[in-house]
Design a protein around this nucleic acid. Structure first.
Length: 202
DNA sequence: AGCACGATTAACT
DNA sequence: GTTAATCGTGCTC
């Protein structure tokens, strides 16, 4: 049995999914090893009218995944060197995705340390591109169905996080995006990830 | 501690 | 030709 999230979880409003992904567990199967951690930061991008969303220009070769069925990984390349991981949301045909910006690592720490090449632990996975580097996620994962049993990247059920501990803020890196989109409170972040640390140590 | 900038490529105008 | 859902380095205060 598995407690992997199914497509129905993602077949909903993107902002709601982004909120509920906080506290869930992101898992990467690396050979026989697991790299996993609690999701601590997400952002919602939805619809062609959202001028921060890649789909603002309609369906293109890059964005075709976002228009397809929910639960698939949307992995894209930016700034000439970074990969970013999203999970597609909303009904098939309506574009939306949640960007996974940060996790709290709990499994496979040695593999993360290795990929992050000697950086201090605080900088292992505290940004969307660092996260992808740490987990070994690149363009090869674009379009992978995370709900399928043989996917090597997926999300499991996790900890229930009270809303009081979740910060809602505008999305990051949208300096040139016009209002109201620049200021939409579609970023969700755990205020103090150390709360999770304490819980997991028991 | 905080800010500015260069890296480096694909997609879009 | 321009820009980008970023990161790491190096400089200044």
């Amino acid at each position: 049995m598995t407690d992997r999230l199914s497509a129905s979880f993602y077949t909903r409003d993107t902002v709601q999914v982004a909120r509920e992904l906080i506290g869930k567990r992101l898992v990467r199967l690396d050979g026989k090893r697991r790299i996993a951690g609690v999701i601590t930061e997400t952002e919602a991008y939805r619809g062609e009218d959202d001028l921060a969303c890649h789909c603002r220009s309609g369906q293109t070769p890059r964005t075709v995944i976002m228009y397809g069925p929910p639960g698939k990984a949307y992995v894209y390349f930016v700034y000439g060197m970074h990969w970013l991981l999203n999970i597609v949301t909303e009904k098939d045909g309506y574009p939306g995705a949640v960007l996974i910006r940060a996790i709290h690592p709990e499994e496979g720490l040695d593999l993360i340390a290795k990929r992050r090449n000697g950086k201090p632990q605080k900088q292992w996975v505290d940004g969307p591109a660092k996260l992808c580097q740490a987990l070994g996620i690149d363009g090869g994962f674009n379009g992978v169905d995370t709900c399928s049993n043989d996917a090597h990247v997926f999300v499991e059920t996790g900890i229930e996080i009270p809303s009081a501990l979740i910060q809602k803020t505008p999305r990051i890196g949208l300096e040139k995006v016009p209002e109201p989109w620049r200021s939409k409170p579609w970023r969700f972040a755990l205020t103090d990830p150390n709360l999770i640390l304490r819980e997991s140590k028991e």
